[in-house]
Design a protein around this nucleic acid. Structure first.
Lengths: 333, 333
DNA sequence: CTGCTTGTTGCACTCGCTTGCAAAAATAGG
DNA sequence: CCTATTTTTGCAAGCGAGTGCAACAAGCAG
């Protein structure tokens, strides 16, 4: 197993009969090289299988082209689809994604972040639910650009992408009202992240405006399992809700399953349900869930476009709309 | 916006009153430094917020600590959970994951791969369904270690991790037989990857051994939607199957939903279904699917352990067992 | 005190690339 | 054909680290 696998610019230069700088310039957009030289360099590079060493380049240029994706619970449907969109678009912009998994609570997170910094990542995109401020601090302090998705945190110098959660919640209320529902409930987790709370507050506010009471129940994390528990709690009330807005689809699926299989309720005639995220499962015929679509492609596009800008605008925030996807879990439509 | 954000070893050395090499050695495990010097260096580093520059280190050592995850359709439940496991364990092993998304068919894939090579990744882990041999060739040629998951490809110098698909298929057949089923079918996609085909062949072989016919139907890609189409094709046959082994859970979910909602069949009394992967949705009460669990943590552990080895064993292959998870989509149990 | 081993330290070179600078070559103007 | 201007090119100095080598200090036996 002989090492020495990579060819260096020197070797390409020798083969092409030019200087090492010429090779470097050939692969640097906008540098001054004659057409003839460029051709010969490219040819030699091709023949030798040369690839610019990004480690060395990053070292010189002081920018690596690496973007960190800081994520927890990345196998959650919404997260996964966002990651898919982000990696795709980053690649199209000639950047590359490093994935940092913040699931484990031990210090491997901290270590991973340190790694990211050690690789001199140009930016970090945070889609972790974990509201650990020290992480964002560290990123900013080490000169990275920062993108916060659905965190509603106020961070100077970062791009903040959020949804119109409050407005979506209001639209959800109106849709349920039009469907003839009268007993409204909101099923939330105890995660209490800003975007989840905005949905809750928006829904409550809409209730207030219409002079209707809204029952709110919170439990556990934002999962299918919590949905089942919330169903238990909400559907055993004396005044059983006939409309439940769930803080996300995963929870909605759990709630619907419990409503059907444990309480024998028929959706939507006896119970209307609205979710949030529009994960793939929402469209499955067992759920056929009316929900709000996270504009993952838009989110990814905004993030990548902002990273591509040369001048880092100081304060920046985008608020995107979530489209209501009408399906069968609400009457009418 | 003044640049110059990072502190270098030189600055730490000055502050600690030692030479730059001392700093370097302090952060190199196994190097010779006195306790006293190390203490002072660490202290200075801490105070200045120093992080070893991995770009530079990688340049010298000729190994970057970067591992590429080459994935397509990464928002698929099984893939996502595998990525979660892999990133987690890589981090614990002080490596870091770069994510390469091979969804787009244009040359952005090629470009991304080139990027990975340019960053001198130490290894690539391929979980892409895409059987593009040129990708694996390129990785190997640029001196990377290679891990192939569920691809059953014979690749010298790579670690191949596969499941006992054939055996699982056989166990599935026996379980269905014991449940009293007599008309067996296998629902496959047209992806025709080795591991999917092994499941099909295993199931067919088991049928042959028991002198029972197995209907095989293949359609589209391995998704929920294909499951619905396959249900249509299989359940309209004159001899309607009462046992269907689906090549994976996603497809099984689609098939079950169609069987129930379009054909009004009751699972498991009129139709038994077995899936593969044990994705989260399989445990949802709407499906309650009997299935085989992909040992994602084992897979990730094997991969990471192999990457940690110093001596690259030439030919290496692991075959892991998939545990049968008994749930309610098969009678008895 | 001398000779020898063991452990630390700093110098200087190296990794592969970018880039300012000045020399060389090509082009234009007269 | 000569000078002035514009490219193009090579030289060499970095970027931030790792490491072989030799110098040096400390510890110990004789």
């Amino acid at each position: 197993m002989s090492r020495k696998i990579f060819v260096s610019a020197k070797e390409v230069a020798d083969r092409a009969g030019v200087s090492r700088s010429a090779v470097s310039r050939t692969f640097t957009p906008g540098a001054s090289v004659s057409e003839e030289t460029r051709r010969r360099v490219i040819e030699a590079a091709e023949a030798l299988g040369y690839h610019v060493n990004h480690l060395a380049r990053g070292l010189m240029r002081n920018e690596s082209g690496i973007v960190c994706l800081i994520v927890s619970e990345l196998d959650t449907p919404y997260r996964a689809s966002l990651i898919r969109a982000l990696t795709g678009q980053l690649q199209s912009a000639s950047k590359i994604a490093m994935l940092i998994n913040t699931d484990r609570s031990d210090d491997s997170v901290d270590q991973a972040l340190r790694q990211a910094i050690s690789y001199r990542a140009d930016a970090s995109i945070i889609l972790s639910g974990m509201p650990d401020r020290s992480i964002t601090d560290l990123c900013l302090k080490s000169g990275q650009r920062l993108v916060l998705i659905n965190r509603d945190e106020d961070r100077e110098g970062a791009l903040m992408i959020n949804l119109n959660d409050r407005d979506a919640a209001r639209r959800s209320f109106i849709a349920l009202l039009r469907a003839g529902c009268r007993n409204f409930a909101f099923a939330n987790s105890e995660a209490m992240t800003p975007s989840l709370m905005a949905r809750e507050e928006g829904f409550r506010a809409a209730g207030r405006e219409h002079g209707l009471e809204v029952t709110v129940e919170r439990f556990g994390s934002t999962t299918y399992q919590s949905g089942a528990v919330l169903a238990q709690r909400l559907l055993t009330r004396e005044k059983r809700p006939d409309a439940i807005f769930c803080v996300n689809d995963l929870l909605a699926c759990g709630l619907m399953d419990a409503a059907r299989h444990q309480f024998n309720l028929v959706v939507p005639s006896e119970l209307c349900v609205v979710g949030f995220d529009d994960i793939e499962q929402a469209s499955w015929s067992s759920y056929n869930l009316t929900t709000f679509a996270q504009p993952v492609d838009r989110i990814a596009a905004e993030a990548v476009a902002w990273l591509d800008q040369v001048t880092p605008v100081q304060m920046n925030s985008r608020r995107l709309d979530a489209d209501l996807i009408w399906r069968g879990s609400v009457r009418g439509g």
